[in-house]
């Protein structure tokens, strides 16, 4: 009973943390998706230089720990040039996470585009469509259905990676939980915190299942 009361008392703080966690996840993966469309098209480009740049980007962001990328954006960039100082912690996290997510989504989008039957490109070409029209009207819309499951996965992974921002003192769920733990010297706060993560994950899962159904009408 006492535990339940404690949990209720902690709820407002945890919910405030959840707001940060959710916003950061949504914003980062959304930005990542936009970046990744260009990266994916770039990686499939005929131009060697564009291909090399996009590949290097993906290699870098997938090949180094997200935690280090976050540290570097927040602490490292100002040292290179004070003009690059980002005082807003949320903004710093968003930049690091968005760039990182772009690299992971790039591979998702590239795989989805390349899974579209070659005949679709040929039919578009035979009808006189140029590359841009073919991508915009024919290929990308068909890729969306195949993107949904892995992008849903990316959201859920990012949700938990977002807990790393506690190290730059951004008050997400994990940071809030740690503060409550140290101020009350009780570790039971992890129970409602984990439940909160599960609830958010469940919501993401439901939304993506719905989306998948909606885009499956023609398959």
């Amino acid at each position: 009973m006492e535990l339940l009361q404690k949990m209720i008392r902690w709820t407002p703080q945890l919910l405030a943390g959840a707001k940060i966690t959710i916003l950061l996840t949504l914003a980062s993966v959304s930005a990542g998706l936009i970046i990744s469309v260009f990266l994916a098209l770039g990686k499939m480009s005929k131009n060697k230089i564009i291909r090399a740049i996009c590949s290097a980007y993906v290699f870098f962001f997938r090949g180094t720990p997200l935690l280090m990328q976050l540290y570097f954006v927040y602490y490292g960039l100002p040292e290179i040039n004070p003009a690059l100082t980002i005082n807003n912690r949320f903004l710093a996290a968003f930049i690091a996470y968005g760039l990182n997510s772009g690299a992971y989504c790039c591979e998702i989008i590239r795989a989805a585009i390349q899974s579209i039957d070659k005949g679709q490109f040929e039919a578009s070409k035979a009808l006189g469509m140029n590359y841009g029209q073919t991508m915009k009207l024919i290929i990308l819309p068909q890729s969306i259905r195949r993107l949904i499951p892995p992008v849903g996965n990316e959201f859920i992974m990012m949700l938990k990676d977002a807990s790393l921002v506690s190290i730059i003192a951004l008050a997400d769920i994990t940071k809030v939980t740690r503060s409550i733990q140290s101020s009350t010297s009780s570790s039971l706060v992890y129970i409602p915190a984990m439940i909160l993560y599960l609830i958010i994950t469940a919501i993401f899962t439901i939304v993506f299942n719905r989306l998948e159904k909606k885009y499956s009408v023609y398959e």
Partner: peptide, 26 residues
């Protein structure tokens, strides 16, 4: 114009949209 062995219709478009899409965009 070309017709393929495996049809290559656009699966995400209705029959009518399949026929309209190229004249409208090209």
């Amino acid at each position: 114009g070309m017709v393929f062995q495996r049809f290559n219709l656009f699966p995400h478009k209705t029959v009518l949209q399949n026929v309209m899409i190229a004249p409208m965009n090209v």
